[in-house]
Amino acid sequence: MFEATELNAQHARTEKLYRILFGLMAVLLILPVITILTVLVVRGGPAISFEFLFSEPINGMTEGGIFPALVGTIWLVSVALVASVPIGVAAAIYLSEYAPKNWLTRAINLAIINLAGVPSIVHALFGVGAFVLFFNFGTSILAASLTLAIMTLPVVIVATRESLQAVPQAFREACWSMGATRWQTIRHVVLPNSVSGILTGVILEVSRTAGETAPIMFTGATLFLPFLPETVFDQTMALSLHLFTVSTQVPNVPEEVQYGTALVLIGLVLSMNAVSIGVRTYLRGKKKW
């Protein structure tokens, strides 16, 4: 009854053309990730060994392993989490459960956007001015971690706020009508229903924090230290800064060591990221409301 006209065929061709064009653009964005990962695994893989992960760099960092840097990154990330998770979760609870629609809430949201958007080197300057000098923590794990904590605070706030808001309003109303206070409702109904969402945010923050370099360069991380940090007032090596060091600051570092360091760093960051995405996808499938 209806036959495809020349015009229809032309439209179909146009559409197919654009579909392929845009699809290709998407693929071209993805291709570098895959290429980069492949090259890092191929060139860095042979360097990875028990000795590489658990021994100190020796001979001007041209041999040996990355153990102090690995331990330092764990220190930095842990202290940063201790500082930022409570503040971030509190901020998210305020924004999701208490905040009225007014100028203050608007200002808070703008501040969060800007905290996330300010260049990392500006956070570093702040860290130097505030934590290293003003609060007199010196160049230490504490100063570096607090700088990182403020920088990645938006990650925790945004993820937590989202998972709190995903809890249906009816849950809260049911609880209030039983005579519960606001906090009792949050504590016993809202938080238990969103705790895994908060967890994905925290894991994402770990991933972000572990990869940052600029904010820790002048606040607590050093190029080389022959011993491990013992308190938060010590300086430390860090994996991200170590990659910068072995690829730009020290001459004659074998390629294998450079690629190995890059592989460990990106492996750490991407596996954390993958866990976070995995948990999120799993939860989305499990949601009953």
Binding site: L29, A210, G211, E212, T213, L243, N273
Partner: peptide, 14 residues
Amino acid sequence: IEMLAAIPSVVWGF
């Protein structure tokens, strides 16, 4: 694309 966003800046530099 989320993975692309996660690659640390120092790794890009490298």
